[in-house]
Every structure is written in C-alpha cells, then in structure tokens.
Write a protein that binds this DNA or RNA. Structure first.
Length: 657
DNA sequence: CTAGGGTTAG
C-alpha cells in the first residue's frame, strides 16, 4: 500500500519533469497534440487509449481538459476522478477549482461541495486558500458566483464557521457579496452549534450590509429567540414578517410552537395550532412535526397518556404519526418506569406500519439497564440485531454505561475495546463513561490511560472528561493534580462551564476549606455563574463540617433569591438533621417542603423512614409513611419492604405499592 | 431550515 503510493507519486513527479522539459526543449505545440488526443478519446470514453497518454499528463492539461468539457460535466468529472483516483495523479488546486466551477454552473452542488470538502479535509487547505483558487480560476464563460455560496456552505458543513466567515469577509473586500442564502446557511449553522451570541452579532452585521431578509432569515431569528426562551419576541417577529410582506411558513409556526412546548406552555402551543389557519389566511395547517413538538412537550411534563390522545387527534385530522412520535412517547413511558406501556407502544407502532429504529431501541435499552433488567436488555439487543437495526454512538454508550452500572465492568471494558478496534467510535461519550467509572473507583491512573487512548483514536477530551478527572483527583485528596488538570483544560478548551466550577467547589468543601468555597461562590455569583447545585454543594459542605447555622443561613439566602431551593436542598438538610438525631425537625422540614410544592422523592422517604424507625415509635413511622404517600410520594420499595411492611404485619407483600 | 435517544457536579 505504502509502496504503491510512493511509486505513483514518483511517476507523477517524473511526468511533471517531462512536462517542464517539454516546455523548454520541444516544439510548443506538443502539449496541444496531447490535449487534442485526450479530448478526442475522452469524448468516446476510450480509457485504454488515455492510459497511454497518461505519462504526458500535467495539471495544466487537466485544467484545460476540464475547461474544454465545461458543457459535459459528467465527462469532466469522470476524467478528473480517473486521473486522481485511478491513476493517483496529484491534482492541483487549480484543476480542482476548474472542475468545481463546472459543477456549480450545472447546479451539481453535491459534487461541488464534496470536491471542496476534500480540499479542506484531505488536502488540509484553509477555506481562504480554496477561495483564492476559485478566484484565480474564475472565468466568466464557465463560472458563476454561486460557487462562493457553495464554498460558504462547504465550510459550515466541515464545521468551520470561522472559515465561512473569513470567506464572506474576504469576498466583501473584493466587492463580491455572497447571497442571502449563503448567509442563512452560515447563520443556521451557528444556531445548530448553539452559538447564540455569535449568531446575533453576525445577524446584525449582515443587516448592516443592507441584505433584505427572506423567509428563511426570519425563521432563523424566530429559532434563535425560541432557543433563548423569548417566546413573546418570537411571536412579534412573526408579525414583523407579515409587515415586511413575507408570508410565514409551516417552519415558522413549528418553531414557535416548539418554543412554547419547551417552556412548558402546552396551552399556548395548542392555541397556536388552533389559530394557525386564521393566522396564515388558511394556507398552512399543522404537520407531523407540529404534532411531534406537542407530543414532546406533553411527554416532558410527564403526561404521556395525554400525548397518546394527541396521536389519535392527529390521525383524525389526517396527519400521520411517524417513528419520532412513537419514539418520544416510548422514551417518556420508559423514563417513568412504565416499560410495559413503552413496549405496548412498540407493538402499536408496528401495527401501524412503522418500524422501530435505532432511537427506539436505544431508549428501551437505556431504561431497561437503569432498572437493572440485564436479561430484558439482552433480549431487546438480540431483537435489534435480528431486525438489522444498526447500532450507533448512542447504542454503544448506552451499553457501556448499562453494563458498568449493573456491575458487569469487565464486559463493559471488553465491549468498549471491541468497538474501538472496529473504529466505529466517533464521539467522547463511551470514553467519558468509563473514565468517570474509573475516577469514581479512585483508579486515576486507569482513567489517565483511557485519556491517552482517546488521543490515540483521534478523540479530543472535552469538558465532561476534564470534569470527571478533576472530581476524581479531588475525591482522592490530590488537589494539586486536580488543579493541574484544570489548568490543562483551560489551556485547550475555551471556557470552563458551571459543572466544572461546581466540581471544584465540591472538592474544596471536602478538603475542609469551606471558607475558600464560600469565597468562590461569591465570585461565581458576581459572574452569574451559580445555580442550585452550587448552593447545594456548599450547604452539603457546611453540613459535612457540622456548621448547621451556616447551612441554614445559606438555605434562607437561597429562598430569598427564589427558584434555587429544590428537592436536593431539602434532602441534604433533612439528612443532616436526621444524623444529628433531630428527627422531629427533619419531619417539619419535610412538611415545609411539601407546602412549597416539592414532592419528596425516594431519598427523602428513605432518609426519614430509616431514621424514625431508629428514634420513634412504630405508630409514628407508619403515620409518617401514610403522610408522605398522601402527599404523593412514591415509597421506595426496598425501604418499604424492610421497615414499613413488617410494622404493618404484612408477612408476604405481593401486590406491592 | 423546525420534532425523538446516550456522558459530568449536590
């Protein structure tokens, strides 16, 4: 393999040498003769003959041939591929650009894009170098300015938004403006990458150049506003569109409806669906995506049964549910522990002619593993293989996490090694899961080895990787190593996120420096980089050091700010009170929690029941259990079985709760 | 162009 590529390279250099020599010593028309011979034989696709001329081929000739065949794009492309792929000739930027112009002229954008992407990815060229190549070879009779739009698109498809912007800017300096379509494409990519701030900056810049927004531009603005949860502004953009004489389309509606669903306002979303006809002069009606957004919104609120009614409703109005509609509901049921309902929907979708895809399988697998049902997961997995549903990155990480959390660590690592060897791992999830596992087991050297394996396989550690390592080092008391990892991270990554800060904060609390932690919280607060977890971590730190006054002072501070206090806050304090033997106060706190609309979870339940079993009378334990159940708490089954059930004299608990 | 699934901190 290596040898043959060396040989082909050598033959190319050799032929290049011939070309130079030819220019100097032989008659000037010799290139013309070769050129004509190529053209005649290429027209009849006589590749055998072309083989014979190949040694005299030069990049200048390739460019000329492509230009000659500018009206037969397929022939030009076949010739180019024959030279490059079959013969291994090192094609120049100029010849590639000539072909790109031809492809664009014939609106063969996919071919043009893949040529550009190859230049960027395989040949390692920067977008600006490609742009220069295109400008140099720009010729009126076979080029068109859409080629520059295509380059912007190629950049964004390669994930190089910076390059895309440089191209737009350079062209602007040359007096050429890319079209609004290219801008839309670029802006859309920024939103996909969740770079909202950059989006608004670029958008403003575009407007300042005098571009006239079209429906897609407006849709992007609506999308950005929805991502920022600025629903009212997105609706007023809708009216701004109408005022500018631009008819909103189904995408506009869907984005606003989805935005409403994401902030939990299903009522508004449904109202919009209802008013869609009036608002669009009866030209637009809801489609599958509209309903899927609503199904998703309802499911996220935990009302899966209601989302099934939405499916019936959509069928009634003639909109077909698809795999996504079902995938959403199946995941929602499984997430709430209703795997039977989830499997029922799997059957239902098959009955309706829909085939469960990878997403559906991944979801079911994930929740089977979380319930510890390895057997069920194995069955689903073999069904997936039987049905030829291909696994993806989600499947791999779900399996690895599932095996890990159910104690099959060796299998998890073995499986990871297998998929790694097959070169199918493309993202950091699987590594992060295992690194996190090793860190949690205090095996930092193992974790660092895996970080090394990431690099070997071309995967760049991300904030999650660094976060796991920092946490791991803090937990084993190696604060200096944690700081080293942090500094390394700051050097290669852009910005630590709140998770990282919270991790460090937690490390500081464990290391007896609650005061340092307090100061850190103050500075995070000033950067508005603190959340419930930040405060809960510090409260937990205070509790761990027995500073009950400080803990409750912070609790009050959180209540003053509002929205910061959550179940974990209460659980932390309740747990601490129980440990100090103040069970009565703990119960009072739980009642206050209920009054604030927070339903105690299985941790609250277990903490209080276990502690009162030690300190209170059986009647009080039962009373506590009844109180919590009455308030909507789902009792944690193992706790109920071990403590409450014997007190009730239930020898054989069969029906369960 | 818009909708579904996996990793991290209390």
């Amino acid at each position: 393999m290596v040898l043959s590529s060396l040989l082909s390279k050598r033959s190319c250099f050799f032929s290049r040498g011939l070309h130079v020599a030819g220019k100097q010593f032989s008659c000037p028309s010799s290139e013309d003769i070769v050129f004509k011979a190529i053209c005649v034989n290429l027209r009849h696709r006589r590749w055998k003959f072309l083989d014979q001329v190949f040694p005299s081929l030069t990049n200048a000739l390739v460019t000329r041939v492509v230009g000659e065949f500018r009206n037969s794009p397929q022939l030009a492309l076949d010739f180019y591929n024959w030279v490059g792929e079959e013969k291994g000739f090192p094609l120049s930027l100029a010849s590639c650009c000539a072909l790109i112009h031809v492809m664009v002229k014939f609106r063969r954008f996919d071919d043009a894009l893949s040529l550009m992407e190859k230049l960027i990815h395989v040949n390692g060229m920067t977008p600006l170098e490609v742009l220069n190549g295109l400008l140099d070879s720009y010729e009126f009779h076979y080029s068109c300015s859409a080629v520059f739009d295509a380059l912007v698109r190629a950049c964004t498809r390669c994930g190089d938004t910076k390059g895309a912007y440089l191209v737009i800017k350079k062209l602007r300096m040359e007096g050429r403006l890319v079209t609004i379509h290219a801008w839309n494409n670029f802006l859309s990519q920024l939103l996909k990458l969740n770079e909202i701030v950059r989006f608004w900056n670029m958008y403003r810049e575009m407007i300042s150049y005098g571009y006239v927004e079209n429906v897609n531009t407006f849709n992007l603005v609506v999308y950005a506003l929805c991502k920022e949860c600025k629903l009212l502004q997105s609706i007023s953009t809708f009216y701004r569109m109408l005022k500018s004489g631009i008819q909103p389309n189904i995408v506009t509606f869907n984005m606003i409806i989805d935005g409403a669903c994401r902030i939990g306002d299903i009522e508004l979303a449904l109202k919009l669906v209802e008013k869609m006809g009036v608002m669009s002069e009866y030209s637009i009606s809801p489609n599958t995506i509209t309903y899927n957004s609503i199904i998703n919104g309802i499911c996220k609120l935990g009302k899966v049964a209601f989302s099934e009614e939405v499916v019936n409703e959509m069928i009634k109005v003639g909109v077909k549910p698809d795999v996504r509609s079902y995938a959403t509901m199946i995941d929602a049921y499984a997430r709430r522990g209703c795997l039977e309902e989830a499997l029922r929907l799997c059957d239902e979708m098959v009955e309706r002619g829909l085939t469960p895809n990878t997403v559906v399988y991944n979801s079911v697998l994930h929740w089977l593993y979380s319930e510890g049902d390895i057997g069920g997961a194995s069955l689903v997995l073999s069904d997936m293989i039987d049905k030829h549903v291909f696994p993806d990155q989600f499947t791999y990480s779900t399996l690895i996490k599932g095996l890990c959390r159910n104690g099959h660590v060796i299998q998890a690592f073995r499986f990871h090694r297998q998929v790694l060897e097959k070169n199918v791992i493309e993202d950091t999830f699987s590594h992060n899961i295992l690194i996190n596992y090793l860190c949690k087991s205090n095996d930092l050297s193992g974790a660092m080895q895996l970080v090394g394996s990431m690099f070997i396989h071309g995967l760049i550690p991300d904030l999650v990787t660094y976060g796991a390592l920092i946490d791991g080092y803090c937990k084993v008391g190696k604060l200096e190593s944690a700081v080293q990892v942090y500094e390394k991270m700051v050097k290669v990554e852009k910005e630590p996120n709140i998770v990282i800060y919270n991790t460090i904060l937690n490390g500081l609390c464990n290391e007896m420096s609650v005061d340092v932690a307090r100061r850190m919280i103050d500075s995070l607060k000033s950067m508005s980089l603190s959340d419930s977890i930040t405060y809960n971590t510090l409260i937990n730190g205070y509790c761990g050091h027995g500073n009950i006054d400080e803990a409750f002072a912070l609790f009050l501070e959180m209540r003053k700010v509002g929205r910061l206090v959550n179940k974990v806050t209460y659980n932390t304090l309740i747990n601490f009170l129980c440990k100090c033997g103040c069970v009565q106060q703990a119960k009072e706190l739980m009642k206050r929690m209920v009054l604030e609309g927070l339903i105690p979870d299985f941790i609250t339940y277990t903490t209080l029941i276990t502690s009162s079993a030690k300190n209170c009378s059986p009647d009080e334990v039962i009373e506590l259990h009844d109180y919590m159940v009455l308030k909507g708490v789902v009792p944690y089954r193992p706790t109920y079985r071990a403590i409450v059930s014997p007190l009730l004299g239930e020898e054989n608990e069969q029906t369960g709760v």
